[in-house]
């Protein structure tokens, strides 16, 4: 569904994306994992043809640069947060996007209903909660029933309940055979949805792996997020890895996968190295789907 070859994008001297190549078959779900500034968002924009870059990208066999319109017609895009004119009413906003995709009113209504927004047409975009906005973005992305859905950290502004809803919806889309490409900060989402994880670091694909490999789990594991001072994060990660923990640094604290019965172990390890932990967060139960490698 996606064929990317040598995608490179620089802003001035900084190379935000460096020579990224990958192929994503239809029906699969790929997660982009990486710290803030690793180039996830830029890569997505390049793939959608919103930004001009070197290299080539094809969506469903359609070249993004030369036939961007046709290529993007195959994509439903969900941003981190829906950005649209604040005082537009929800109904007219979605109708506008429907108009761009040759979608009729009945289909628009159905799409709204499918994300539980039926009856909110007269609300203005500025009055929507974060969750509703993301559901609206999803509804817009799904309007034309595209085969590929691209999401850029779709849950990062949502609370637990909102996240759950979005993840569940994505799960259903995946089951229905859609191709998913998403950037995420959250291991639980990655583990739940992704068949494959591309780990980005400083713009380049560092590892092409799976969630199971990233977070090996013979035993049931709990992913915890440790909040430390920024300065000590790198040091702490090294210490924890030396102690045999699976660690990931992704800009919002340190994610550590630990056996369920040893949740305090990383804190202890850090305490021994005089690294202070400010806060701990239990990430939602990670449900590793059966049959996923």
């Amino acid at each position: 569904m996606i064929e990317a070859e040598g995608i490179t994008k620089s802003f001035g001297r900084v190379e935000a994306v460096r020579d990224v190549s990958f192929t994503q078959p239809a029906g699969s779900a790929v997660a982009l994992w990486g710290s803030n500034g690793a180039g996830k968002t830029t890569l997505i924009r390049c793939l959608l043809g919103v930004m001009r870059c070197r290299g080539s990208a094809r969506i469903g066999g359609v070249d993004v640069r030369s036939r961007g319109r046709q290529a993007r017609a195959l994509v439903g895009y969900v941003p981190q947060e829906l950005a649209f004119h604040d005082d537009v009413r929800l109904g007219s906003a979605i109708l506008f996007f429907g108009g761009l995709r040759r979608v009729d009113g009945a289909r628009v209504s159905a799409s709204l209903a499918s994300v539980g927004l039926a009856g909110h047409e007269r609300k203005r975009v500025r009055d929507l909660s974060g969750g509703m906005k993301q559901r609206l973005a999803l509804a817009i992305a799904l309007l034309a029933d595209p085969p590929l859905i691209v999401l850029d950290e779709p849950t990062s502004n949502l609370d637990a309940a909102g996240r759950g809803e979005v993840v569940q919806t994505l799960r259903m889309l995946k089951d229905a055979g859609k191709t998913l490409l998403f950037a995420s900060h959250r291991p639980d989402e990655v583990i739940t949805l992704a068949d494959r994880v591309l780990v980005l670091e400083r713009g380049a694909v560092e590892r092409d792996t799976t969630a199971a490999e990233l977070w090996p789990t013979e035993k049931p594991v709990q992913v915890i997020r440790l909040h430390l001072s920024m300065a000590s994060e790198a040091h702490a990660a090294r210490v924890l890895r030396e102690a045999g923990h699976a660690v990931h640094l992704n800009g919002q604290g340190l994610c550590v996968a630990v056996p369920r019965d040893q949740k305090a172990a990383p804190i202890h390890t850090l305490a021994c190295s005089q690294i202070q932990v400010r806060d701990i967060e239990m990430l939602d139960d990670v449900d590793i789907p059966e049959g996923t490698p």
């Binding site: 924009r45 959608l48 919103v50 961007g68 319109r69 046709q70 993007r72 017609a73 994509v75 895009y77 941003p79 829906l82 950005a83 649209f84 996007f97 761009l100 995709r101 034309a144």
Partner: peptide
Amino acid sequence: LYLLAQPVS
């Protein structure tokens, strides 16, 4: 950017 991510040129 959101507008440009739609199927428009």
